[in-house]
């Protein structure tokens, strides 16, 4: 049974086709990074998998059709970390993390010891315990991202979907977030699917990469298979250099500024 199996996915906004005939299979407990230029449908694909926007075609989550899940049932299997978590209304960090328990609780049920314990663990896992009483709008970008990931962990999902979780973070924080996701995958067998613009992080952490271009998945496979100079150059319209610093090191990708292809 795959964590995600999608066949012939399509999304159309007005007369613009965002996704065209996308097929995607993700094994349980694997780490998939979706890469590709801006506006190629990465976020839309992620949202479609989470059932947040309607799409044509078939999606199965953990062997069951997406349409067969109720919102609550789906939220117990799959958690989403959005690109711009919002906060006009200042919840505290602890309140935010505990919200992750809502799909597991009845309408009038209060969080019990079990839920509080899980929230505590999630906050320890992402190292935000010391922020528990602070308001979300007082935090830095990296802290807020870790809080939202803690909320997702608190949801006890088997899949976690993240939309550019490392955007606007400094390199140290980027690596911290990625390490955290990798630990989550190793320790708890959670399937991680994330969208990223950072090809080097993708090469370091992704077991599988999906390179999207113009609403399609152009290449799907290991970093070595996907991160090729011709493939990237064709997608991004800018020459890309791919190399290794040592035999055991991950691939490095850099754009080449002078010789523009387009």
């Amino acid at each position: 049974m795959k964590a995600v199996a999608a066949r012939g996915l399509g999304i159309t906004y007005g007369n613009r086709q965002i996704l065209r005939q996308v097929d995607l299979g993700v094994e349980q407990g694997s780490f998939l990074v979706i890469i590709g230029p801006n506006g190629t449908g990465k976020t839309s694909l992620l949202k479609a998998l989470a059932g947040l926007i309607p799409a044509t075609g078939e999606i199965e989550i953990l062997g069951r059709p997406l349409s067969g899940y109720s919102r609550r049932e789906l939220a117990r299997q799959l958690a989403m970390v959005p690109q711009h978590p919002t906060g006009d209304f200042p919840f505290t960090v602890a309140e935010t993390v505990l919200m992750g328990r809502s799909p597991h609780l009845g309408l009038l049920e209060s969080e019990g010891e079990h839920d509080l314990g899980l929230a505590q663990q999630a906050m320890e896992f992402t190292d935000v315990v010391h922020l528990a009483g602070r308001h979300l709008d007082e935090l830095s970008g990296g802290e807020r991202q870790r809080v939202i990931i803690a909320r997702a962990i608190c949801q006890e999902p088997r899949l976690i979907l993240l939309d550019e979780p490392t955007a606007s973070l400094d390199p140290a924080h980027q690596v911290r977030i990625m390490d955290l996701l990798e630990r989550l995958r190793r320790k708890q067998g959670v399937t991680v699917i994330m969208v990223s613009h950072d090809l080097n992080l993708a090469a370091m952490y992704g077991e599988q990469l999906a390179l999207m271009h113009d609403g399609r998945i152009n290449a799907l496979g290991t970093p070595e298979a996907v991160l090729t100079e011709p493939g990237l150059t064709a997608c991004y319209g800018c020459r890309m250099e791919v190399f290794r610093t040592g035999p055991a090191d991950p691939l490095r990708v850099f754009p080449v500024p002078e010789a523009k292809v387009c």
Binding site: R71, A75, M80, P82, S102, L107
Partner: peptide
């Protein structure tokens, strides 16, 4: 009765939906 969903709705429709509302 809908107090908890109200909390989640403050995060926006998509985030609320992703948490089971």
């Amino acid at each position: 009765v809908l107090a908890r969903p109200l909390n989640l709705l403050l995060l926006g429709r998509e985030e609320a939906a992703a948490m089971g509302v």
